[in-house]
Amino acid sequence: MSKTLLEINKLKKHFPIQNGLLKRKQYVKAVNDVTLSIDQGEVFGLVGESGCGKSTTGRLILNLLEPTDGQIIFDGKDISNLSKSELRLLKKDMQIIFQDPFASLDPRMKVYGIIAEPMVTHKLFKTKQELDKEVRRLINVVGLKDYHLDRYPHEFSGGQRQRISIARSLALDPKFIVADESVSALDVSIQSQILNLLKKLQEEYNLTILFISHDLSVIKYISDQVGVMYLGNVVERGRKEDIFKDPLHPYTKALLSAVPIPDPTLKRERIILEGDIPSPSNPPSGCPLHPRCPMKMDICAVELPELRETRTGHYVSCHLYAEK
């Protein structure tokens, strides 16, 4: 039996919109009732269109944002209401790799300082020699050389800067890493190198990774489990093989039908969703997809479907699969 490292229950994040004094306060419902779990040593891919709440979910897990409601359980401990000192200790076990490595690396610091800073902050080593040895080990682990430690971030390519970000994320020997669109800003050839590096490190260090992306091909390559988000909700989740071979939710089917097939002789039904994505400040009633769904029923406009296990390990939030 695999151990559950992270469990999220009914997580919500609503950002207030500032209105006039006489107007009712409105909220952008960026994350709305997200429930999922990630096992130790697993790569969980979270996929969806831009603005669906993927990155906000990752930041909520790391406590970079305070949740409006819901529960986050990490390694058996409820971390939703921890004190600052308890959070400081916890953050050694939880790290993030940001989308833009140039923006996330301090341009005034050399690479040595960028990698060493978290270890110095948490006082992991008693001597300078031990610290030097670990910094050099980490830069080599991500495929760079010792002489790169004496350079600034602007002296590197995008792929090299992302390798530095990965080395920094490993500095505290974390249990869990959020990779937030960590290859989307890179060329395709460099993307494959970084993905292979992440996969290798995940196996070597037994890391648990929440990999956030809008690219289904990237999710398919690196993930063990997949969650599909739409308008702040997880509408489907399960094993990668189940999601890609036999998707259940109409939104997942539409996403997969839009992926190009390299073989022109193969024909596949193209599913087109009507209209545009509703505003998260004024989401539709009932199922969030119902205004655009080609398979909608009357109940879809009234009642939000539960995320229900329809097959072993395969969950879907759709009235088409409601218990009869």
Rank of each mutant, 00 (worst) to 15 (best):
1 M>D: 12
3 K>E: 15
4 T>N: 12
5 L>C: 09
6 L>R: 06
7 E>I: 06
10 K>Q: 14
11 L>E: 02
13 K>H: 15
16 P>A: 07
20 G>N: 14
23 K>E: 14
24 R>E: 15
24 R>A: 14
26 Q>H: 14
28 V>G: 03
31 V>K: 00
32 N>H: 14
32 N>M: 10
33 D>F: 01
35 T>Y: 04
35 T>N: 09
36 L>S: 06
36 L>M: 15
41 G>D: 13
45 G>H: 01
49 E>T: 12
53 G>Q: 04
56 T>S: 12
57 T>G: 03
63 N>D: 09
65 L>S: 05
66 E>M: 06
66 E>L: 07
72 I>E: 04
73 I>H: 06
73 I>G: 05
74 F>Q: 06
86 E>Y: 05
87 L>S: 07
89 L>F: 05
92 K>S: 12
93 D>E: 15
95 Q>W: 08
96 I>T: 09
104 S>L: 03
105 L>G: 05
109 M>C: 12
110 K>P: 02
111 V>K: 04
116 A>V: 04
118 P>I: 08
119 M>Y: 08
125 F>N: 04
126 K>I: 00
127 T>G: 01
134 E>R: 13
134 E>H: 11
142 V>P: 00
144 L>R: 01
146 D>S: 12
147 Y>G: 00
147 Y>D: 13
147 Y>W: 09
152 Y>H: 15
159 G>Y: 03
160 Q>R: 11
160 Q>V: 05
171 A>C: 07
171 A>W: 02
171 A>K: 00
172 L>S: 07
174 P>Y: 11
174 P>S: 14
177 I>W: 05
177 I>N: 01
183 V>F: 08
183 V>H: 00
184 S>N: 07
185 A>Y: 06
185 A>N: 11
189 S>Q: 04
192 S>C: 09
193 Q>N: 10
198 L>C: 05
198 L>G: 04
200 K>W: 05
201 L>S: 04
202 Q>M: 10
202 Q>V: 10
203 E>M: 08
208 T>G: 12
208 T>S: 15
208 T>Y: 13
212 I>R: 04
213 S>L: 08
214 H>L: 10
217 S>M: 14
223 S>D: 07
227 G>A: 15
227 G>K: 02
232 G>V: 00
238 G>H: 00
241 E>V: 13
244 F>P: 03
244 F>E: 01
245 K>V: 02
249 H>P: 02
250 P>N: 05
259 V>R: 11
261 I>F: 10
263 D>W: 03
267 K>T: 11
268 R>D: 07
269 E>H: 10
270 R>A: 09
272 I>G: 10
279 S>K: 13
279 S>R: 12
281 S>M: 14
282 N>F: 12
285 S>N: 14
291 P>Y: 05
292 R>W: 08
293 C>V: 08
295 M>I: 08
296 K>F: 14
297 M>H: 11
297 M>S: 15
299 I>W: 09
301 A>V: 05
308 R>F: 09
308 R>I: 13
308 R>E: 07
311 R>S: 10
314 H>M: 04
317 S>K: 13
320 L>W: 11
324 K>Y: 13
